[in-house]
């Protein structure tokens, strides 16, 4: 694409979204540079999830624009949005959302298959990622055989597999104990640095923002502060 160090990976401008009479996002604007990690904090119902859904192309904003690596996603068709989700934006979830019938390896490999990467390269990338998350020995385990921390590592590897420019991490440590949560944060930090991937980290926890260069706060759908 057309990303470079001066161009932001993500630029959100005047984003507004309402469900009926209730405004969920109100004139939200911010941007993320390549490789930058930004925290997004807010209470329940503050509009975090809606913002993430809009950024992921799952929801459509009522007004405003979302530009990801130069592409205005609200102008894209459903298939073009799918392509963006495959190649440019990945999501990490609080509840991991691994596909339960696929092994760890297969879960990581699936996005690469969607992109159509050759099997040899696929195998190499998956193997490298398994090593990076230190789960080579658990590659053939299915999610129900993995611990919470292991599942989240696999989810991170899956998110990184297509080498996206942006990762949307939705409470990635919210369902883990504090020790495991810390290790996951370390992993996210290390891998985003290594792969030069920008990250929007949605969290309740102030501590989790330690890996971010700045933090955005959202309240009643509007951004309050920008550090």
């Amino acid at each position: 694409m057309n990303s470079n160090s001066t161009e932001p990976v993500l630029r959100v401008s005047n984003l507004t979204k309402a469900y009926g009479d209730r405004t969920v996002l109100s004139d939200v604007s911010f941007s993320l540079a390549a490789g930058e990690r930004v925290g997004l904090m807010g209470t329940s119902g503050s509009g975090k999830s809606t913002l993430l859904n809009c950024l992921g192309g799952i929801d459509k904003p009522d007004s405003g624009s979302i530009e990801i690596t130069g592409n205005f996603i609200q102008e894209k068709t459903a298939d073009e949005l799918c392509k963006i989700r495959r190649e440019t934006v990945s999501t990490i979830f609080q509840f991991f959302h691994l596909l339960p019938t696929l092994s760890a390896r297969e879960n990581i490999e699936l996005p690469l298959e969607l992109i159509g990467i050759h099997i040899d390269e696929r195998n190499e990338r998956v193997q490298n990622l398994l090593e990076e998350i230190q789960l080579t020995h658990r590659a053939d385990a299915t999610p129900d055989e993995l611990s919470g921390g292991e599942m989240q590592r696999v989810a991170i590897a899956r998110a990184l597999a297509p080498r996206p420019k942006l990762i949307l991490a939705d409470e990635p440590t919210g369902n883990l104990d504090s020790k495991t949560g810390e290790s996951i944060l370390d992993l996210l930090e290390a891998l985003s640095q290594k792969h030069d991937t920008a990250m929007l980290l949605v969290t309740h926890s102030k501590a989790a923002t330690r890996i971010c260069s700045r933090t955005l706060k959202i309240h009643d759908g509007a951004l309050e502060t920008s550090n």
Binding site: G56, I58, A78, D79, C82, K83, R85, R86, E87, S90, T91, F93, F95, H97, L98, L99, P100, L110, P111, L114, I115, R158, P162
Partner: peptide
């Protein structure tokens, strides 16, 4: 839930 994940990974309809 899986379907949503698939969509988020990039599966088309």
């Amino acid at each position: 839930s899986e379907l949503t994940t698939l969509k988020e990974i990039g599966f088309t309809r």
